[in-house]
């Protein structure tokens, strides 16, 4: 059951709030090294912003903005960034995710390379978590039927 639910108050507030929620998500992501936060939490907050769009607008409109294909691409991109950072360390002659060896390719010392490597995998985690969270929400809200039920309703 996909209910049509248009409301100008909710939509206006959604348009106003979504950029701030996304900014806050990036803030949580960027402070993950030194304070509570990190990739997973930032990804969840970012997914909450998209879920807000999906709730406030009807599903067809929201899927036109951020469709299944984009979600899958982002999901794979996040895993690719995470695994790619790990494999880069492996290729440089160290263990998986041993970021210190990234200083051979990055123009920094091993300590800074460790810092940037951690930021890289947090970025990968953030993107993957965001895409998977929105994808799970879509699965739940369309009862796993995705396109078909929406096309029937939209036609």
């Amino acid at each position: 059951m996909v209910r049509e639910f248009e409301d100008v108050i909710i939509q206006t507030l959604c348009r106003f709030l979504v950029p701030f929620i996304q900014l806050y998500s990036l803030y949580v992501f960027a402070h993950g090294h030194s304070s509570p936060g990190g990739g997973f939490q930032g990804g969840c907050v970012m997914a909450a912003a998209f879920v807000l769009i999906f709730i406030a607008y009807d599903l067809n409109e929201a899927k036109r903005r951020f469709g299944e294909k984009a979600l899958l691409i982002f999901c794979c991109l996040g895993v690719f960034i995470y695994a790619g950072t790990g494999w880069a360390c492996l290729l440089l002659g160290s263990n998986f995710l041993d970021y210190g060896f990234l200083s051979k390719v990055l123009p920094t010392d091993p300590v800074k390379a460790r810092y940037y490597g951690m930021a890289m995998i947090e970025l990968g985690v953030q993107i993957a978590v965001m895409a998977v969270m929105v994808s799970i929400f879509l699965d739940l809200v369309t009862r796993g039927e995705h396109e078909e039920i929406l096309e029937e309703k939209g036609a």
């Binding site: 209910r3 639910f5 409301d7 108050i9 909710i10 507030l13 106003f16 709030l17 701030f20």
Partner: peptide, 20 residues
Amino acid sequence: VFIFLANPTATHAIMRAGLD
């Protein structure tokens, strides 16, 4: 500020959903 904006709107949405 964000509580002040979001809380009445959430109340409105729940109320509207109950009416629907």
